[in-house]
Design a protein around this nucleic acid. Structure first.
Lengths: 117, 117
DNA sequence: TGGATATATGAGCATCTGTTCAGATGCTAA
DNA sequence: TTAGCATCTGAACAGATGCTCATATATCCA
């Protein structure tokens, strides 16, 4: 990539840019990271995850707890399912959702410590 | 909140909803959490944070490293500054940005472990 | 099988978000 | 003070996102 494609400024610290490039994660992992954070960046999804960290819940329970429509919950659960953050178990017509992995709730706890400083 | 305002379904586990309500964080903390995750949910910002975790960098360096305009970088840095995730130091006309707190990069490392499983 | 319940899904829509562009600000040196 | 560079900022626009509504699917039971 020729210099003029990158930046017109005079003050560039080439070595820092090179350093950043070296330590940077590959595109795939960076994308996955962003996806994971995006999953928790929405209030509805964040609350779903935190609720499921306590106990499994059905769509209806979650909708009641969050005060949103079941359709909205279902749409968000779909995204969380696709990211394999939650899984479900069927009992008759009812689907019970739970966290697929408690790594995520640890991540939230960790972030919470940052907020509380 | 009367029952009919919440959910029309017959199958509700009142005690789970109550349990979720009890353990739920207050509105302010939940909002801050979502904001923090949102800050890391965008590829540009995530890369900025990861780059600054290595070394401080000026806007120009970051723009060159990321391959985006300086204006775009500046806008994103503004958001990260408002969330107090980054701070800067002036040296003449150049502003050097760095992480305000390495908690954030630890958070990324932690999330990375989840991704690598 | 038919009807009721729980959930899923797709389309449509309003809002949010990230970028670009133009212009403003701040610092330095001549 | 003026010119030049680095950065910031606001407006505008395109694309992403989350919700709603209508409909589809799945399970159970009469």
């Amino acid at each position: 990539m020729p210099r003029e494609d990158r930046c017109q400024c005079r003050v560039i610290h080439e070595e820092r840019i090179a350093g950043a490039r070296e330590t940077a994660l590959d595109k795939r992992e960076t994308g996955l990271l962003a996806q994971l954070f995006k999953a928790m960046a929405d209030l509805t999804r964040l609350k779903i995850i935190m609720a499921l960290a306590q106990d499994e819940m059905c769509v209806c329970d979650l909708a009641a707890f969050l005060g949103v429509s079941e359709s909205a919950v279902s749409h968000q659960l779909r995204m969380l399912r696709q990211l394999q953050l939650v899984s479900n178990r069927r009992e008759g017509p009812v689907l019970y959702y739970r966290l697929a992995d408690h790594h995520v709730s640890k991540l939230i706890e960790f972030a919470l410590e940052h907020i509380r400083e």
